[in-house]
Design a binder for these strands. Structure first.
Lengths: 100, 100
DNA sequence: TCAATTAGTCAGAAAAAGTTGACTATGGGA
DNA sequence: TCCCATAGTCAACTTTTTCTGACTAATTGA
């Protein structure tokens, strides 16, 4: 996954496709539709995944503004990742991808 | 890019995203909207590209049914890659990706 | 016949992406 | 105080993807 560099993108859809197609990302997006995501739950829930990759995927999705990272100051102080407004704009795109 | 294997895909959009997001593929798709593609023209036209990668991308897009490979029996006998019916179903998806 | 254009293939190298296991750091509960 | 859960980071390694340069093979024009 590495660092994100805004390259000399010729095709407008290219950048977005790149961001959405990293390993685990489509799955994370899909799970985020059902409710907030938590790191350790994902690690158990998403078969075959690993800390590093999940952390990187979440970080990038947050950096690109598709997810919000929220610190929940409750009983067991923790972090939740929720779909942002920008993230919700992708819902119809995913819906369209699914019917093809 | 390697071989395509239908993996245990959990998210329906995942496979499609993988196919569309290979390097050069979004650009090839976009160029195919304007008319038939020819190998050597692409090689000159698409900056930074190379034979191997273009050949692989075209082959996969044909295998997945997004492009048709047509042998043109004319003056300089050659090959054209054109958007297939299936390929055209992607047009609205790309349009939607572009406005985000 | 020679040379150019067509459209590739192949093997190996390099670069990017993903995985592993060890480690860090904070907050509670017993 | 010790231990567990939270949510990570880091360096090294493996795997996958992409690129390079050399080569093949058919067609065509001079």
């Amino acid at each position: 996954m590495g660092e994100i560099q805004k390259s000399d993108t010729v095709c407008p859809a290219e950048e977005l496709l790149k961001i959405l197609s990293g390993k685990w990302k489509p799955q994370l997006f899909r799970l985020a539709l059902d409710g907030p995501l938590r790191f350790n739950s994902l690690l158990r829930q998403v078969e075959g995944s690993n800390k590093q990759s999940l952390a990187m995927a979440l970080k990038e999705l947050v950096e690109e503004g598709y997810l919000d990272k929220v610190i929940i100051k409750a009983k067991p102080l923790h972090i939740e990742y929720t779909l942002s407004a920008r993230g919700r704009t992708l819902i119809p795109v995913f819906k369209q991808l699914e019917i093809l």
